[in-house]
Amino acid sequence: MSRPTPTMALKVMRSTGHRRVTVSWTISIVVLGLFTLAAIFAPLVAPYNPDQLDFGAIYANPNLAHWLGTDSLGRDTLSRIIYGARTALLAPLIVVIASTILGILLGLLAGWRGGWIDAAIGRLLDVLLSFPALLIAILAVALFGKGLVAPVIAMSIAYAPFVARLTRSLVISERARPYVSAYRVQGFSGGWIALRRVLPNVVPTVGAQSTLNFGYVLAELAGLSFLGLGVQAPTADWGAMINESQAGLVGGHFLPALIPAIAVVIVVVAVNVIGEEISERIGGGTPA
């Protein structure tokens, strides 16, 4: 629009209100930024080696030497949290990226081609969706052994259907728009239109939505490690830390288990706040 008309001005006023930068958004960004920096620069930031045992300081309460105390083997909890942030953040990131790419490709194919391809992909997605992601991950561990590689791949596949469904519905609505017909009339091939023109128009919305998966994946991977199927000792991992500290709970040493649990909660909440804000901004914006 060269000039806003009164009717338009009213619509804008009614729909968006005032887009405010909320406190929770700012805090979430800061929290996630701190965790990310800590994970990247763990060797520089962590006060101790995460695997260093200190039998003189078993179950130490928080003090000046150990800010967050120590666990049953005298390992510094803060250092383990910092090192644990590496797997806690990196693994979900890989899952989100991989599932987004896989889901977008499937969804684009199904939505663009329609017909039997759509039906076939749709049933495949239904089958995948009927299993909880954690179950698929456990199955992958059972087949390929413990460790993070198998669960990450399994989760990437398990989360792809959510992305694929969204992509498919967006592609279908996009395909019906006259600009796609205009490209066809100009002589462009279907594949070119789908990949070069329609795909870039749906990626922002899909991408914003799949950032929301990050939190879920983080929590589920932590759960997997808690069950002893994910990250293996002695590598520091939040889920594994909770698991290892279970025994201490009976003796009243709840901090070594509580702190990694709190870390999981903080990061998941922060990621979800950011993800929701992003998808609201992108999804709620008026398309052209």
Binding site: R177, P178, Y179, S181, A182, Y183, V185, Q186, G187, F188, S189, R197, P200, N201, P287, A288
Partner: peptide, 24 residues
């Protein structure tokens, strides 16, 4: 065939708000 067809006939659509790619 596609290019040949395109050179024979082109179209201008009704709604200019929808017939242009929003990103281009």
């Amino acid at each position: 065939d596609r290019l040949d067809r395109a050179r024979r006939v082109q179209m201008v659509f009704q709604d200019p708000y929808l017939s242009l790619d929003p990103r281009m």
